[in-house]
Amino acid sequence: MNVMLRGVAKTFNGKQAPLVALHPITLDVATGEFVCLIGPSGCGKSTLLRLIADQMPPTAGDIRLNNAPPGAARKAKHIAWMAQNSALLPWQTVLDNVRLPQRVNTAASRQNGQHAALNPADLLRTVGLADFAQAYPGTLSGGMQQRVALARALATGAQLWLMDEPFAALDELTRETLTDEVLRLWQTFRPTVLWVTHNIAEAARLADRVVVMSARPGRIKAIVAIAQPRPRDETSPETAAVIRRLRAVLRESGVNGLNGFCERSAISV
């Protein structure tokens, strides 16, 4: 599924004054591409993801998923949504939580033949939790809960994964293991991924392209393309150069009030 953003902007109605969260954003993401969004806190990364997920309408601009409005993709269950909060149902077993996307809105599932192929029990095995199928989420560790949420996101069979800092609350070691898992799953299923992160090294390890955003109101500050094959080694000179480059751009974008400055550069390393 390709993503096309044309001048997408969002202004919230604040209590006193309107709050401009996103300046017009124009971006194209190709089918099967892995794009990371990175930028200072509050710059509108989550807002952008929620706009694409059809959780709220943009104030201006046009969003197209496979050339259709995002509502159509959502209603067809083509979007997998995952955030920092695992949002598991504590009263359902791990397996039932993973099955949830296939149990609700079955009318949409019937139209997508491919969904039936994804067996929830197999997905649990994929994320290494086959032994916990009958456990309740409250008995799992934070990392295990996020893995369940990941399996559930896969169970939709969606071609677009919108992931808002999915592993940000986890420790470094768990996060690395899980992102490697996601990378493997991405290589298997080849969905389009939009992945928000604060972690520069993570972006450098995962992305085909990294979209760097400037401080609020958010705009695209730079786009860094990474051509290296995966798995990437952070200590390799190429990856180290990407990380350095990202850090440099981010340092500039972290300064508030850098108005009128919107560099768009594509750097291949």
């Binding site: 997920a53 959502r74 269950k77 949504w81 609700v104 809105n105």
Partner: peptide
Amino acid sequence: ALFHSLDAG
């Protein structure tokens, strides 16, 4: 948000 993303009734 999850249920919304699945367009659940």
